[in-house]
Write a protein that binds this DNA or RNA. Structure first.
Lengths: 117, 117
DNA sequence: TTTATATATTTAATTAAATTATATATATAA
DNA sequence: TTATATATATAATTTAATTAAATATATAAA
């Protein structure tokens, strides 16, 4: 599957979804988790992920805590109240969109006439 | 729903899907049909649609017939053999992708621990 | 009658959101 | 000492859209 093509636009929503499931996550962890959950199909690149996290923080959607773990710097991100609301809205929005697209994709040839063809 | 955000990358596949259901369609018709099938959620802009149709024709995926209908120029697009194969592959690819994303989005909080959280 | 709306295609300018590449740094296994 | 994994950050580039502008006809409304 060439997911790259379809990823664009949904990264922010995926990140918000994962953060809504946990108290906090760090960037590398988010990327790894998405890869794992998608059976290696979706690889969030860091060049996309970190700017999104930065922007969400600037917008007041995320709060951060920096820590040293095993002598390496780590930056944890948590949803704020505003961020939790945004996550909920975005996830619901994307779910609806996926449904709409799916309905177009699964329409069988035999049904085409029925929906106005 | 703010579909604009999520549309990117899937337009080509939607176009190929619609064309795979019909002998031929013209640009305006494709845009109208997508709008109708998505209950006005997805509006393919012509600035995106026509360059995609042009490119697919250049790649040998589409053949065209220009006709005058009601004194207005109309350009019909049909899938070639190569185009039909591409349509099949692209639709299947997108379906799989949607499934993967949906599985991430629907994962309930209570299940998070189960999938390694 | 002139205005708005719908039909129809095309293309240039601009913007947004990615990818790719680069930089920096530590830990561990081969 | 080399490769791989962990971890963040950002600049340069590319891609794929949106927006806008150009062109043209038909029809309904004001």
């Amino acid at each position: 599957m060439n997911s790259k093509e379809y990823i664009r636009g949904i990264i922010k929503t995926l990140v918000l979804k994962l953060l809504s499931e946990r108290k906090r996550m760090y960037g590398y962890e988010i990327s790894s988790k998405v890869k794992e959950l998608s059976a290696n199909e979706i690889q969030l690149t860091y060049g996309a992920l970190y700017p999104i996290l930065y922007k969400l923080e600037q917008e007041g959607m995320l709060s951060t805590e920096s820590e040293m773990v095993d002598n390496r710097a780590r930056k944890y991100y948590s949803l704020t109240k505003k961020g939790r609301e945004m996550a909920k809205a975005k996830v619901s929005e994307l779910e609806q969109f996926l449904e709409v697209v799916k309905n177009i994709l699964i329409a069988p040839k035999t049904n085409f006439e029925a929906w106005g063809g």
